[in-house]
Amino acid sequence: MNASADRAIDIGYAATAVAATLAGALGHRRLAGITKPLPIALLAVRTAVGARRRSSVDNVVLAGALAFSAAGDRAMLLEEFADDPARKDRRLQTGASLFAGAQLCLTGLMLRRGARPRPAGLFLRTTILAESAAVMARHRPRLLPVLGAYGNTLALMSATADDDRLPQPRMRTGGWLFLASDLTILNRRHLITDPTLAGLAETWVLASYFAAQWLLITGLTDAD
């Protein structure tokens, strides 16, 4: 029964993720506002279906990861469509702070599964994210402390997801996709001026983000 429910939810997740990705890529504010919350809401339902298989601690931390992600999605949606630069900066800081909470929850769950980040993997991911830090230092330096701290939580999560004690390659792929999605956000904002390329970049940002969330959350829950 649970397997059948999971399959139905996964189909719904894929459909709503496609809808949210297209809405965001096309810059349709109203449609994006309706569709963007749906994939994470469906992941929350999928997680709840199997809650009895997990410990109370794991359920609480999973709920935290999903709640932080849902709130972060909302903040980033508001940032995307904000006209005032100061408001955009505040929304971006809020979104980064919320997603830092989500990354720490995901990392905590992986640690409870016995995973440990390797120093080399953590260094590689931190080095890659240094590119986006350089972009921020050039264009929005006052946001660097908050976004830099978020980048550290993202690198830690992605490096921990690389551990072979977790379901692979699902977790490893999810960790890399999350990092690639967030890396593209800042580059799209400040380095891409062509509207067509910007739309393609936003398509990648959203598609890779939703894929990463599904891979990470289901990787952690399906193994229970």
Rank of each mutant, 00 (worst) to 15 (best):
R29Y: 01
R29A: 05
R30E: 14
R30H: 13
L31C: 03
L31P: 06
L31I: 09
A32E: 15
I34R: 00
T35S: 01
T35A: 01
L38H: 04
L38W: 12
I40P: 00
I40W: 08
A41G: 01
L42N: 02
L42R: 12
L42T: 12
L43K: 02
A44H: 04
V45A: 01
V45G: 00
T47V: 05
T47D: 01
A48M: 06
V49E: 13
V49I: 15
V49M: 00
G50W: 10
A51H: 08
A51N: 01
A51Q: 10
A51V: 13
A51M: 11
R52I: 14
R52N: 02
R53A: 07
R54G: 02
R54E: 10
R54H: 12
S55R: 05
S55V: 11
S55C: 03
S55W: 06
S55I: 10
S56T: 14
V57R: 12
V57T: 14
D58F: 09
D58Q: 13
D58W: 08
N59Q: 02
N59S: 04
V60C: 00
V61K: 05
V61G: 00
L62K: 00
A63E: 10
A63I: 14
A63R: 10
G64N: 07
G64Q: 05
A65P: 13
A65L: 13
L66F: 11
L66M: 07
A67F: 12
F68P: 10
F68V: 01
F68G: 09
A70Y: 15
A71H: 05
A71E: 10
A71Q: 08
A71M: 09
A71F: 15
A71K: 12
G72H: 06
G72C: 05
G72F: 02
G72S: 00
G72L: 08
D73E: 13
D73I: 11
R74L: 09
R74S: 02
A75R: 15
A75N: 12
A75D: 13
M76N: 09
L78Q: 15
L78T: 11
L78P: 10
E79M: 09
E79Q: 09
E80L: 09
F81L: 07
D84A: 03
P85T: 05
P85N: 03
P85D: 01
R87W: 03
R87H: 00
K88C: 09
K88D: 08
D89R: 07
R90M: 08
R90H: 10
R90Y: 11
R90F: 06
R91W: 15
R91D: 14
R91K: 04
T94R: 12
G95F: 06
A96Y: 09
S97D: 13
L98G: 03
L98D: 10
F99G: 02
F99N: 07
F99I: 01
A100K: 00
A100Q: 09
A100Y: 02
G101D: 11
A102T: 01
Q103T: 13
C105I: 14
C105K: 06
C105W: 12
L106A: 04
L106S: 06
G108V: 11
G108A: 02
G108P: 09
G108E: 07
G108M: 05
L109Y: 13
L109M: 06
L109V: 13
R113L: 00
G114Y: 14
A115I: 14
R116F: 07
R116G: 03
R116D: 03
R118E: 14
R118M: 08
R118C: 08
P119Q: 04
P119N: 07
